[in-house]
């Protein structure tokens, strides 16, 4: 499904730490005190929303000079790819990506990806809009952990 995108993202050197995330969170989040029988459930599923370090995000000042729509269109992607494209839980990052975003979007527009959710999102953007995305994400840098 997303293996292509994931492979491409390996340049960022982010290790596969899904299992580690689960373990470390179960140690620091309170799962007791439930009054509704939750103690009988042991899903092991947590949604830690504090993993992005915003002090490690930087937005190049020249981003302010980008064409109207660049920031806004890029932010639509953030819903699934993280604020500023800094994703959580082993999902493709977008920060720092320029030409790759163009490649991904044109690839996903291909009918061979018709069974992928990104297919429909890629079809929703015009070429000009994809070009705006390509101008925005290279302005974002992230030096924190995830």
């Amino acid at each position: 499904m997303n293996s292509n995108l994931k492979k491409r993202n390996m340049k960022l050197g982010r290790p596969a730490v899904l299992a580690v995330i689960g373990l470390s969170l179960s140690g620091c989040l309170d799962s007791s005190g439930s009054s509704n029988g939750d103690d009988e459930i042991n899903s092991g599923i947590y949604f830690d929303i504090s993993s992005v370090d915003y002090s490690a995000v930087s937005v190049d000042a020249s981003a302010a000079d980008l064409a109207s729509g660049a920031r806004l269109l890029a932010a639509q992607c953030a819903q699934c790819h993280g604020t500023y494209g800094v994703a959580v839980r082993e999902w493709p990052d977008l920060w720092g990506s320029g030409r790759q975003i163009g490649n991904w979007m044109s690839q996903y527009q291909d009918v061979n990806y018709a069974d992928n959710m990104m297919h429909v999102h890629a079809l929703g953007y015009t070429d000009d809009e994809v070009n705006l995305l390509k101008t925005y994400y290279p302005k974002i840098a992230y030096s924190g952990g995830q």
Binding site: I49, C80, G82, T83, V88, R89, W91, M117, V120, L123
Partner: peptide, 29 residues
């Protein structure tokens, strides 16, 4: 544009959690 998964699958389970996690973090994180 709009599309559903070709069919419901077990393979979609982990991507669901990954998607939701990113949505929760983008909104409340």
């Amino acid at each position: 544009a709009g599309k559903f998964a070709p069919e419901p699958t077990e393979a979609n389970w982990q991507p669901m959690l990954q998607w939701a996690h990113n949505l929760f973090a983008d909104s409340f994180g």
